[in-house]
Design a protein around this nucleic acid. Structure first.
Lengths: 135, 135
DNA sequence: GTAATGCTTCCATCTACTGGAAGGTCAAGC
DNA sequence: GCTTGACCTTCCAGTAGATGGAAGCATTAC
């Protein structure tokens, strides 16, 4: 398979696949004309990467997960640890975003949004934000 | 005030303040020795930036917000629009993260996490994910 | 034969900083 | 006057994870 084929089949852009090769996540063969030749196993790795990335795993996580995926003697505890740590990072991010959302929604709600200059959003950003912790 | 002073007062690292000058968000004066000299107004801008960034506004959003902040003839509608669009982006991100969290939490929960190789997390990543949409 | 894809490499760009090296400046203490 | 340490300067490189584009072969369709 050429890069266009695995791109269609894995759902990853060709650019991204070349990038993944560059950073050692996949290692296709080469034809005489210089074209990359992908085996079924390469396609599986790329599909795996696409799914793992879509779940938000970092590239380094993916590297570890792929290594475990290939390792018949892995312990599922190692996989679980990577996933659990990622889950914890997601939870942190969620808390942060929800706090932002809370404050922003309140400010947007307070702003008249008309053609006058008075604006509680700017007031908050400028340092006067007494409502910030109130519901 | 020197950069160390505004760093302490605004809560922004000196490195970040230099970077903000480089991209035109703040324009301190210079002393004869080459040191940056910050006025009160510069400090206000930096504190404004710190707050806006902590609410997740992009640098370009901040640029717009600062311009409106300085503009006595602004319409609060313009501020509100920037904030509202940012809120919408946050909501998108939240939905995405919550979906990831949901799937990940389920997978982590299903994984034995012992020394055996069987692992529903890897099974999912490898393409077999029948449980993905189920609760 | 030629036009349209498809493939290659290489370099630049994005966001928002952050780290570090090499070196100038200033205030305190002796 | 000299040293020490804290502060300041610029410049360059690197982070994550791609993505865009240019210049130039290869292959296929007609």
């Amino acid at each position: 398979m050429n890069i266009g084929d695995v791109s269609r089949l894995s759902g990853l852009p060709a650019k991204t696949i070349r990038y993944y090769e560059e950073i050692g996540l996949v290692a296709p063969l080469r034809d005489d004309n210089g074209y990359r030749r992908f085996r079924e196993s390469d396609l599986h790795r790329l599909a795996f990467l696409n799914r793992a990335r879509s779940l938000g795993f970092t590239i380094e996580d993916c590297r570890g997960l792929l290594a475990l995926y290939q390792d018949d003697h892995r312990a599922s505890a190692d996989v679980k640890r990577i996933a659990y740590e990622h889950l914890a990072r997601i939870d942190e991010k969620l808390v942060e975003l929800q706090a932002m959302r809370q404050t922003l929604a309140h400010l947007v709600n307070c702003c008249a949004g008309d053609n006058r200059p008075d604006c509680p959003i700017l007031d908050d950003l400028a340092g006067a934000h007494p409502e910030q912790t109130k519901p």
